[in-house]
Design a binder for these strands. Structure first.
Lengths: 225, 225
DNA sequence: TTTAAAATGTGATTTATGTATCATTGCTAA
DNA sequence: TTAGCAATGATACATAAATCACATTTTAAA
């Protein structure tokens, strides 16, 4: 069981809670360690808890008409998982899985709802969170449709470098198939695109290890599509 | 100036306000009539108000790397416009335009924020609204990438029939270009796809007038992609 | 270590859709 | 009405990316 009051990466929403409320939250949440590949929440299952990614890295993914999953987002510490579903629906509308060693806090949904109606500032922070989150999907939606595979792959590599790993040399903890599901392409196209970007000298890739050799060039490809 | 307290299509969130709060809201909002094509909010502009679609029909759209706009959503009465931007950002991240005669209520953003921090139930309803909204984008995101143009067009026709016009025979107040921007295709593909769906006898189309001849067939195309 | 299974790379081929071009229709306004 | 312009339809062509099929590498297991 974690201690929410001293949690270093607790959300802004939790910051808005009173000590008593934090204690209440803490009493109704459970911390779980997860290995890559483990399922955090599952599309189609009944939702009794919402999850909070405390440490690690995860994806949310959703089944499409073709039967395969599309990765909607890479989640970093500080993300709520399943909040949209829990509040407006009884069944999870998407899945989430760890892709690195992660710690998840499962929060009882009734308690969570309780806090929302009791503390307007808590609710307010959640609204901000949801707004930001939705705007990021808008940008992603438009980008994915106006860029071709090379541009989308460049986006992803830059995202991992700039936002996640904060380094020019890093591991992307996704299979080629996963990357394809993320950038809306096929495994083969991802392979070819990695080759393209390597051939022009913008990146060096070995398995899951990526290194950015020419950041500006990669940026250009990302921006022109 | 509208009268929020007797507004027939006011949001659930406003339902949660006290009479005094409704009066406060009313004092800080302005009702505007709009013609098709008129801009409700504009991407890149400073946001001082959020909008509420009282009557009519509108789109939200966002500029992509290619320079052209992608339509993110068709808005029906009861939708908030620019809420995501206003709460987390100073600049509108997307545009909205009327596509039929519409009535828009512009709400002063400071007042709106005020109400959120004063009334937890109001905030709670907004959270529900945002959650539902985001989930709809998840579904749309996955669909658009796993269906081809015929399936996406079928989706759109079914959407207008089932959700908007509640009839098998109706007008879609969008140009071919607009439809293309909505289903992530080109004008030419839309034309071809309309011809496809007509040829198999699922629809009859004349200009902007659509009639569904074989609902089940259209549904199959929508579902199989 | 050896073997099996999964993931990845590669090339050939197909296909859906974009691009380009031009004809036609319909609408707006004088 | 007629001119002018935007929207639409239609067709030929180009291409990005999917699909298919198979080789190779990596990983996991025995």
């Amino acid at each position: 069981m974690g201690n929410c009051s001293i949690c270093a990466i607790r959300s802004k929403a939790v910051d808005a809670l009173s000590p008593t409320e934090v204690e209440y939250l803490q009493g109704n949440c459970a911390e779980v360690d997860m290995k890559p590949g483990e399922s955090i929440i599952k599309e189609g299952s009944l939702s009794s808890h919402i999850a909070y990614l405390k440490t690690g890295l995860a994806t949310i993914h959703k089944k499409g008409v073709k039967g395969t999953d599309q990765i909607l987002k890479i989640l970093q510490p500080g993300c709520y998982i399943g909040m949209q579903t829990v509040l407006s629906n009884k069944i999870h509308q998407y899945s989430a899985s760890a892709i690195e060693d992660s710690t998840i806090c499962y929060i009882d949904i009734t308690s969570f709802k309780d806090l929302i109606s009791r503390n307007a500032q808590f609710a307010n922070e959640l609204i901000l969170y949801l707004c930001r989150d939705e705007l990021s999907y808008f940008a992603r939606f438009v980008n994915v449709h106006q860029k071709q595979v090379d541009g989308r792959l460049a986006d992803t590599i830059l995202f991992f470098s700039d936002e996640v790993k904060k380094s020019r040399s890093f591991q992307i903890p996704l299979s080629r198939n996963d990357i394809a599901a993320l950038i809306c392409a096929t495994r083969e196209s991802v392979t070819r695109s990695i080759k393209d970007l390597s051939d022009i000298g913008s990146i060096r890739v070995k398995g899951k290890s990526f290194e950015i050799l020419n950041y500006d060039l990669l940026k250009i490809i990302s921006e022109k599509g």
